[in-house]
Amino acid sequence: MKLKYVPVYAGDFEEQLKFYTEKLGFKVADNVLFYEDAECTLLETGDYDVLLAISKHNPHTDTKGCIILNTDDCLNDHYRLRTAGVQFDTEPEYQPIGLVAEFSDPCGNKFVLLEERNYNEL
């Protein structure tokens, strides 16, 4: 058993899809019919097996969520996304886990850009 799809709340489907593909650079992996009348668009967020699923009518995701994206260089990705027009809710901040910056998608899901840092290593 493993984690495969994470459904994400999409208020305005088209706007959401545009934000994910054009600004965040996610790639559309597939369109699948989950249930009758519930076609989902699956999005790749990088080199991971877990895909995000958004849909015009999805009975499973009517609440906003929070998604943590992994990055190996938070300052760089923060800069790149900001240049692409993503508005950040917080500037990169130092937390015990590493460097963290937050933004929201058009319908209010929260995204956390996280660069984990090991503070015990030399």
Binding site: D73, L75, N76, Y79, Y94, E115, R117
Partner: peptide, 28 residues
Amino acid sequence: KGDIRYNIFHLKHHLDNNTQDELLINEY
């Protein structure tokens, strides 16, 4: 060590790869 080490190594990586973007460099 710690954050300054991570940030300097990232910056150096960008510069070694010939990044010209001054806004990004100044961010670091």
